[in-house]
Amino acid sequence: MATVTETRSVQELQAVCKQIRRHIVTMIAAAKSGHPGGSLSAVELIVSLYFGGRMRHDPKNPRWKDRDRFVLGKGHAAPVLYAVLAEAGYTPVGELNTLRKLGSIYQGHPDRRFIPALEASTGSLGEGLSLACGMALAARLDGSPARAYTMLGDGEIQEGQVWEAAMFAAFHKIDNVVCIVDYNRIQLDGFVKDIMDIEPLTDKWRAFGWHVIELDGHDLNAVNAAYDEAAATKGKPSVLIAHTVKGKGVSFMENNPKFHGMAPTAEELQKALAELA
């Protein structure tokens, strides 16, 4: 079967990222609750997959057997994934502002009962990498070229299950799984280093048998290159340690723990949209 991808230039991807950010702040403001910080930090990393040709997928055929899978381990960043799925043509853009409302397909955390294009229902942290490993193994058994991507939050990797899965992936040489750590340095209660430091992070993943790629998670050239490097790495799984800025793109949200899980007010939304124009 032909590879279905959509590849855009970095300049075009930057425009998509800006649009995604506008959707994120607008839908969370409409919902009056949600997680803007960790959605904004993940934009380039997810846009590169869906629009930069790094993930093989087909919005017209969300259940294509050989598609690449994406599992959002950090399910509270649902707005970024919803905005991407909508812009890619999987779901209606016009309904994004129904986020978190009764009957909306855009549930508070990703819920595959409502959106077939979601590969998993997430929100309880620590489970995404295990799920992606299972999907990658299934592809390997089927002789399929499909790859499985999962994005974890930095706070999320405090969960023990992540390290069970990290051991498992390396032991079984699952080289078609890619883990992305959105290292934005802030979790709900404050800065990661103050809540439960996860350093030395690259050493941890290397010690677990992973190919580690450290990068600036907002530099689209670096992000694209990192995915290419991961795809070319055989015999072991790859992890992207992506240094990002929580709240990226909205000045008053950047590096501000308050906007981990706080919606912007109407006034803040206007200010944010002006910055994202």
Partner: peptide, 28 residues
């Protein structure tokens, strides 16, 4: 052996790996 996955003493990961396999069409 190619369809049996040793998960080590890590039940939480095992259940979710199984769910991932099942999500991709396996009878796990």
């Amino acid at each position: 052996p190619e369809r049996f996955f040793s998960c080590g003493i890590a039940e939480a990961n095992m259940v979710a790996v199984g769910a991932g396999l099942a999500s991709s069409g396996k009878i796990a």
